[in-house]
Amino acid sequence: MQVSFNINGTPQRVEVEEHTPLLWVIRDILDLKGTKFGCGKAACGACTIHVDGEAVRSCSFPVQFAEGKNITTIEGLGTGDALHPVQQAWIEEVVPQCGYCQPGFMMATAAMLEKIPNPTDEDIDNNIVNVCRCATYYRMRKAIHRAAEIKSANL
């Protein structure tokens, strides 16, 4: 089927089998490799993107439901050359180790901050439930608080 949507501000139309997970459309057809495959079963969060501002695990989101939606991936998280506050905070705190899970965490964090601009530790525990095997959680928590600060200072 044909599906049309906006991705990172650009309209796209793809011809693809309707059940195809959005993840593979993003990675293999649109060649945006920042969204990662970890499990394919909505269990790790490596593939997290935004669909109309909501954090979504794209490996388990059939492309047909993307029709007419606004999609953001890590490549479109910042504005132009400027990094998003979450990415800035991630750099300040030197969060990534292997880095593979990190786009998913940053996307989940950015979506959370839109709803909870000043998250408590408990908010973070409840909303950030992706898996990081390098276990960078300690720095991520600091970076999430820092991102909230940068974001509110920018307002």
Partner: peptide, 11 residues
């Protein structure tokens, strides 16, 4: 660091 924060295709 930067590549890993912008989601560069490095893996």
């Amino acid at each position: 660091l930067r590549d890993k924060v912008i989601g560069a295709p490095i893996f």
